[in-house]
Design a binder for these strands. Structure first.
Lengths: 206, 206
DNA sequence: GTCTATAGACTGATAGAC
DNA sequence: GTCTATCAGTCTATAGAC
């Protein structure tokens, strides 16, 4: 099934896993080499150093985190209410596949702000100058919600979608008799609930 | 002002800072010793090892994260609507003082689940068997919201409060011309907004 | 391209003087 | 209790054979 991938891709795949699980500091190049089924020296042959390899993985991870919504957000053909559904569901899908991603990105930015902050600038003005932002503004002007920054609503979408997945271990251990199935149901319920709540905040009739 | 604190407390204070900033893996015992203004050997004299010191800091950090609400949540004298205000505002206060706390706890649990999961068990059943949960259930039964698990609402409170603070670097760099003052205003606006939204979800008239 | 062997640097921890 | 000096182990990175 994964027989023909190049060694370079094998290493990147292993690096993605180990870095996202343990973070840069606790990740060992030996772990990555073992996970990839290759020798440690080969890792330095393809990528000059642990740091260079990490930079590549982090670049990818950040693009994955933001790129996901950029497409939907600026699509002018999608009506506001449906767009909310799409954003939430796409994020949930992506996060369930890759649940370690957001915590990895956030905590590495925190551990090394100077180095990583500038890269986020790639998606600069992602929010202020997009069509979704405009759609929300229009709706909020109509419905007498002019005092509220549309960014507040956008952050609510991201918060209510990302946090329950980032905080999975907490959720499970606090709410004691919660099985994996319970958790899956809990998250899946939010696919419908979060868009409903967002529509309430925006006073979308539907 | 902080002249008379014991050496042990000085080390703990420094450890709290360094661990929460860099995480266990990237934190160096030398960094902690320097930050505390003492020698490296002294750190091992007071605490047997880096790991023991970390365990103490993590124990404290977790208690700080949960302990904060436990008191309010089980107070039967506080009415539901006001309790929501209290929880949000206490959390915002605490997180602004200690913004690295949640990301630290969450990412260390992820990096080392086996070791840290059991400790959360201290606050087991924090949610299911508390009075706040009962208050929400009652309200939701009255208002024809029986299909929704009150835990969903509780998670919304935590998500909408914690995430914007955890994601500060992202928020600032994505929404490009955002100063520190802008950010402070943004968070302070949420002190009123989040409770309003939660009341909407619970159909609390007020 | 891929391996083994090892260098070189860093880190946590301790011994021992004061 | 606090320090200096140092050890032992671990980790990244490279040299060199195939």
């Amino acid at each position: 099934m994964e027989k023909d991938i190049s060694t370079e891709e094998k290493i990147k795949k292993a690096a993605r896993k180990v870095f996202q699980e343990k973070g840069y500091g606790q990740a060992r190049t030996r772990d990555i080499a073992d996970e990839a089924g290759i020798n440690l020296a080969l890792l330095n042959y393809y990528f000059r150093s642990k740091e260079k390899l990490f930079d590549i993985i982090m670049e990818e991870s950040m693009q994955q985190m933001f790129g996901l919504i950029v497409g939907v957000v600026n699509d002018e053909s999608i009506e506001l209410s449906r767009k909310i559904d799409l954003i939430v569901n796409r994020y949930v899908d992506s996060l369930l596949e890759n649940p370690n991603l957001p915590l990895f990105v956030l905590s590495e930015i925190q551990a090394n702000p100077k180095k990583l902050m500038e890269r986020v600038g790639i998606s600069e003005n992602l929010i202020k100058n997009n069509y979704f932002y405009k759609q929300m503004s229009d709706q909020m002007n109509k419905k007498d919600l002019k005092g509220i920054d549309p960014l507040q609503i956008f952050i609510n979408i991201v918060s209510m979608t990302v946090f329950p997945i980032v905080g999975k271990p907490l959720l499970i251990s606090i709410h004691s008799p919660m099985t994996e199935d319970d958790y899956a149901n809990f998250i899946n319920d939010r696919r419908k609930l979060v868009p409903q709540w967002i529509r309430m905040m925006l006073k979308i009739d539907k």
